[in-house]
Nucleic acid binder design. Structure first.
Lengths: 340, 340
DNA sequence: CTGAAAGCGCTTACAG
DNA sequence: CTGAAAGCGCTTACAG
């Protein structure tokens, strides 16, 4: 067990004060007009003895931890994992470390996690909030913590956020189906009133109405077992035989949906057109490949962390709310080309 | 900005000493023989004023952060994400918080991350180490930090670890192919000498030799672009037309492999048998479903954190190295039933 | 140019 | 039964 060396040890060894060392470590040697000779000497000592200042003590003293709390819905989702990856990279470049966790869209768990981050004194938050966390988010903001909402937001709260243009992306995807010979287009979504899901539905509905097509929406319970979802969708498609295209609001709904379609023996894309929201590597792997709405992850991530950093760098009174809406990419593959 | 209340504020308000409050908070009221009346009064005050002790100050004082550093290869992989989930749960129950990060199997990144965790004073480590990190792991152990290696280990280091019985699992899977009418069985693996990959190869080789079959191994560079992998495997299968079954050492190799097989027009399972190591939801989604070796994630996770907790709870001199080897599950699906 | 001292918010051995 | 005091390892206003 190697005893870690502290600033006091250096002070004793070099026979100078802790203040001087602290200034040198923090690059304030010039500002404090410390002689070059002393500066060099201290730096060399530090280097030779492998001194690392204690973060803990620094944080206690400065009130800053240089830690950002990142709360996503599910860190194992490709989308969120990539987000975390990109956010982390930029955070590091700015001297911040990221702590991440998954809310699983569970309000209780989220509350606990927020408390946990608070306890750990994170300097700022990037959060994909479950529905109904308005109060907690508001109180975070009220405490003076910089907060950036991500992927979804609360219309009733004045907070910064970075989201995808879900409405437009969804509208475009739905329109594409309508313009490619599909005439009974169903929208399969989650039973959730989160903003991003609502926007996707509205986009779909608008496209249907514009093309004089029927609006057919089927809702699957959130957190459903995939097998249950397959069953529900088989039932749905059996009861709605006229449906000739299905647009899924999430990628995992599409997984279950494709299974259901296969069970019923419909052929993609001819018997049934398919689009999924939120691209996934498997869509390119499956046969036929599946058309999808892709989220520009690195841009979403970059915007989120940059907004947070700008809040972090400003005193409370200068912080302005920033709202960023990023457009999606539409990737056309084989699941939407109907042979006429 | 709400000013947080400190133990000193309570002491002043209640006109008692900080020590007394500290003892009460830490459940040592009885032990320190503090009157029930005072205890109640303090607890009530804390409750009413929402006091939370500063973790930072506690850590600085005790030298413990109650944080476990979890370093996995890639947190977005289903396997590692699930691991993290289970580990976190048990850690929480024991008062520990988890910080996780991904090594991406990159030695330089791993070195940085270890340094980061050290800087943040984590109390213990669970690590899936990239190849060649022996020195860093050893120095962690030498410093007196509890360390549990996971998923793979270093034969030359005396450290605790929890791993899958890769050899046996791989042997069984290979044997299954050999016993189900496949006669030219190729093993597709990564160009990596990590222990788990090595064990999988040895298990395969043993089964082949026992059945008098040819050992055919193809290595794909680690971190290869999937499209590149597909090309390599198409080339490999073209040059090895006799191959009638392929056993993939990881699930993502199987993704590329199936694409290659499809491109060549072979039919699974009749023209080509398939097994993948490390189960994936997609294997059950694909048609035909794909036989796989599944890792019992919750058991692996449970063992890892339990071993770490037992180290954490013991003084340095009482810590014994613990080595745990967990058996795999073999899931037979449709990709391995050859019609004769 | 450099240092002594107070303070961040806890814990804990010691004293009574 | 309870408190005064030192200490964890830093930072920073103040003094000279």
């Amino acid at each position: 067990m190697i005893k870690k060396i502290s600033i006091g040890d250096i002070a004793a060894a070099l026979n100078i004060s802790k203040s001087t060392i602290s200034f040198i470590i923090n690059g304030k040697a010039k500002e404090k007009r410390i002689s070059l000779a002393l500066t060099e000497k201290v730096l060399q000592y530090i280097d030779e003895n492998g001194y690392k200042p204690s973060r803990l003590a620094q944080s206690l003293s400065t009130g800053k931890t240089m830690i950002i709390g990142l709360m996503v819905e599910k860190i194992s989702d490709y989308f969120f994992a990539q987000m975390a990856y990109h956010i982390e990279e930029i955070a590091y470049q700015n001297g911040y470390k990221i702590f991440y966790c998954s809310t699983d869209n569970d309000p209780d768990k989220t509350r606990e996690l927020i408390q946990l981050f608070r306890d750990r004194n994170v300097d700022g938050y990037i959060i994909t909030p479950p529905a109904g966390m308005e109060k907690e988010i508001q109180s975070l903001i009220d405490e003076g913590s910089p907060v950036v909402l991500f992927d979804r937001y609360y219309p009733d709260i004045e907070s910064s956020y970075v989201i995808l243009d879900n409405f437009k992306a969804s509208y475009n995807a739905s329109k594409y189906l309508a313009e490619h010979a599909y005439v009974h287009i169903a929208f399969i979504t989650l039973d959730s009133n989160q903003s991003q899901m609502e926007d996707r539905k509205q986009g779909y509905a608008k496209a249907m109405i514009e093309h004089g097509l029927e609006v057919i929406v089927e809702k699957v319970p959130y957190g459903n077992d995939p097998d249950q979802t397959v069953k529900q969708l088989v039932r749905f498609l059996r009861q709605n035989k006229r449906v000739d295209a299905v647009y899924f609001a999430t990628n995992y709904l599409a997984f279950s949906g494709v299974k259901a379609i296969n069970q019923l023996g419909y052929k993609i894309p001819d018997g049934m057109g398919i689009i999924a929201f939120d691209d996934h590597q498997v869509f390119d792997f499956y046969e036929p490949t599946i058309t999808a709405v892709a989220q520009p992850i690195s841009e979403l991530a970059g915007q989120s962390i940059r907004v947070l950093l700008s809040l972090l760098n400003k005193p409370l009174e200068e912080r302005a709310v920033q709202k960023v809406i990023v457009p999606a990419h539409f990737i056309i593959r084989d699941s939407t080309t109907r042979l006429l």
